[in-house]
Amino acid sequence: MSNPIIEAHNVCFQYEDAAAPAVKDVSLTVEAGEFVAILGRNGSGKSTFAKLLNALLLPTGGTLRVNGLEARTEDDCYEVRRSCGMVFQNPDNQIVATIVEEDCAFGLENLGTPPEEIRRRVDEALLDVGMAEQAGASPSMLSGGQKQRVAVAGVLAMRPRIIVFDESTAMLDPVGRRDVFELARRLNREEGITIVWITHFMEEAALADRLLVMDRGRVALAGAPREVFAQVDRIMKLGLDVPEMMKLAARLRRAGVKLPEGIMTVDEMAVELCRLK
């Protein structure tokens, strides 16, 4: 039973003054409710692809349907942006207002939502991301992770079906990173929101339902994280990394230890090794 929410067919995008396209012939389908991670080096086209999903950029070739809609007119673009929210990398540069709850309301205000409805949804969204207590605070007093949670709340209040996180944890410390990632996972599991998680942290990518690796504008590898990361050499060659345990498992296997494929976490490794003891 397939229920695609993002359908890309040979999507291309080239910036006006660029020599080569930033996104080349990308074809993929994302099912509603999936958590898809996109991994790739800086400049691999992953951020450009994110902006295409949100109709901030329009494909220069191919077709891209998001939530059943192909953005052709300006109104379509706003509809796509409403159903597909986006959280950016720099927590400082995406907060518009001087008060947390005002920022959270920004999207709904733009959509012309009635004030009482905005109030209700903003309160809900702030509660959902655990920032209700800071509703009246100034964003400049918050930590990076908290700012990102406010940004998520601002998107959430618009009731999107998809949220794209464009390297939203790149500038955070480990605590903030875990916080924001866990939040995205919870929204995916509990509220059924489709997540496109762009990152270059493989620990995060390892926990996705599906993993796409982009390289020079194309999708180079795709599949379940375990399958993709099993290609250790290929991934390293693409300038990325694989989880430590996968590297260790490969090393142990080479030395003759009989380990099953697809060990990614410390827990899994410990369980397997204890079985051999």
């Binding site: 260790l248 090393r251 142990l252 080479r254 030395a255 003759g256 230890v257 090794l273 051999l276 003891k277």
Partner: peptide, 16 residues
């Protein structure tokens, strides 16, 4: 890796 191999009695047999 070497320590695990050692414990499993595989140390020394193959280079890690």
């Amino acid at each position: 890796c070497a320590a695990i191999l050692n414990h499993l009695g595989k140390g020394g047999k193959q280079p890690c």
